[in-house]
Amino acid sequence: MLYPIAIEPGDDTHAFGVIVPDLPGCFSAGDTLEEAMRNVREAIDFHLEWISQDGECVPAASQVQDHANKPEFRGFVWAVVKVGVASGRSQATIPHAVMQAVVDGVTPVKAWREYLNLGHADVAGRLGISQSAYSQQEASDKLRKSSLEKIAGALGLALEQLDF
Rank of each mutant, 00 (worst) to 15 (best):
G10F: 06
R126S: 06
A68S: 15
S28A: 14
P9T: 07
L48I: 10
E49M: 15
A68L: 13
Y3N: 02
A86E: 15
N39K: 04
Q53T: 13
A139D: 10
V58P: 01
S135R: 14
A133R: 06
I94P: 02
I44A: 04
D122F: 04
S90D: 07
V20M: 04
T93N: 11
Q63R: 15
L33V: 08
F46A: 14
F46S: 13
D54E: 15
P71C: 07
L116S: 12
P21G: 02
H96P: 11
G105V: 02
A68R: 14
D122P: 05
D22T: 07
S130A: 05
A86F: 07
L157K: 02
M1F: 01
P9I: 03
K142R: 15
A152P: 02
T32I: 07
V83K: 03
T93L: 15
P24D: 14
H14M: 13
A101W: 01
S146D: 15
S140H: 05
P71Y: 10
E35Y: 05
S90H: 09
I44V: 03
W78P: 01
G55D: 06
G75M: 05
A68G: 08
Q137L: 13
G88T: 11
R38A: 13
Q131S: 08
N117G: 12
Q100R: 15
N117Y: 11
F16Y: 15
P21E: 04
H14N: 15
L23S: 03
V80N: 15
D11P: 05
D12R: 09
P9A: 08
L23Y: 04
C26R: 08
F46Y: 09
V64A: 09
R89C: 05
H120M: 13
S52W: 11
Y115W: 13
L2R: 09
S52P: 10
E72H: 05
S28N: 02
D141K: 15
G119E: 14
G30W: 02
H120V: 13
P95M: 00
G84C: 04
E72M: 12
V18A: 02
S147I: 11
I151G: 00
V58T: 11
V81R: 01
P95D: 06
L127C: 01
G125F: 07
N69C: 12
E72Q: 14
P9G: 09
Q91A: 12
V85T: 15
H67C: 06
K70T: 03
V40Y: 00
S87M: 07
P59T: 07
R126Q: 02
H47N: 02
E49P: 01
M37T: 07
E138F: 02
G25A: 05
G119W: 11
E42H: 00
L157W: 00
Q53C: 12
W50P: 00
M1G: 10
V20Q: 01
Y115A: 13
P24L: 12
K142C: 07
A61H: 10
L118C: 08
L2A: 10
W78C: 09
F27T: 10
E42K: 04
P59F: 08
F73V: 01
V58Y: 10
Y134W: 11
I129Q: 03
G84F: 00
V98M: 08
V109Y: 01
Q65Y: 15
N117T: 09
F27H: 12
D163V: 01
P21T: 00
A36M: 02
A6H: 00
M1C: 03
V103L: 13
L118G: 05
V123S: 00
V81K: 05
E49D: 14
